[in-house]
């Protein structure tokens, strides 16, 4: 059996596209799992077992990456030389400055026990979710634009550049959504169970 490629698209036998048919991807994942999963190598020599372990870890990592449109886009960006670095809550996108400022005020008050802001915070949360949905719609269009452009072409690069900006903004909003969620559900304390 030939060693599988480390490139996720090649491993799955898919073209390098930002729009992927989820059903096809899942079917390939199951087929390749049947072929490579370590359970299939229980009676094989150690070298083959190690190879299966290695291949399956790439397969699983690849499936996780390709089935999530955002992770898939980041993977392609990194491959094409547009990496998205570690970005924390600094670098506020300029168009969000005002809203972030207001949000921080609200969060501050909620944390200090002022429940009067709860309703405002809820509507702010809803607003951020709408913004995220809007970006997702925009990204979908960009993905199609990239897929339609010739590889390495100027318009492909242009699309990737725009995708990177949109993803950065999306990630920033994602963090805001999370902050609002946490503030609203503070008393529930999710994931605080002892291990």
């Amino acid at each position: 059996m030939p060693s599988p490629s480390k490139d996720y698209f090649e491993f799955f036998g898919l073209q390098r596209r930002l729009v992927v048919d989820a059903e096809v991807l899942q079917r390939r994942f199951y087929e390749l799992s049947r072929q490579w999963h370590p359970d299939r190598f229980g009676r094989r020599p150690v070298e083959e077992q190690n190879e299966a372990l290695e291949a399956t870890s790439v397969l699983n990592d690849g499936y996780r990456t390709l089935r999530d449109p955002m992770k898939r886009a980041m993977y392609v960006l990194a491959q094409e030389g547009f990496p998205i670095g570690e970005q924390r809550s600094k670098n506020v996108p300029p168009e969000l400055l005002e809203e972030v400022f207001e949000l921080n005020m609200m969060l501050e008050e909620i944390r200090s026990g002022d429940e009067s802001q709860r309703h405002e915070l809820e509507s702010a949360g809803k607003h951020f979710l709408e913004m995220r949905a809007e970006i997702d719609g925009h990204l979908e269009g960009l993905f199609q634009r990239y897929d339609a452009a010739a590889p390495e072409s100027e318009s492909a690069k242009q699309a990737l550049q725009e995708i990177r900006n949109a993803l950065n903004k999306r990630r920033y909003i994602e963090n805001l959504v999370r902050d609002v969620d946490r503030a609203l559900n503070a008393e529930l304390k999710p994931e605080q169970r002892e291990l």
Binding site: L53, T56, V58, N60, D61, Y63, R64
Partner: peptide, 8 residues
């Protein structure tokens, strides 16, 4: 909840 084998 990552499918194993998984790596980083």
């Amino acid at each position: 909840n990552s499918t194993i084998p998984a790596s980083a």
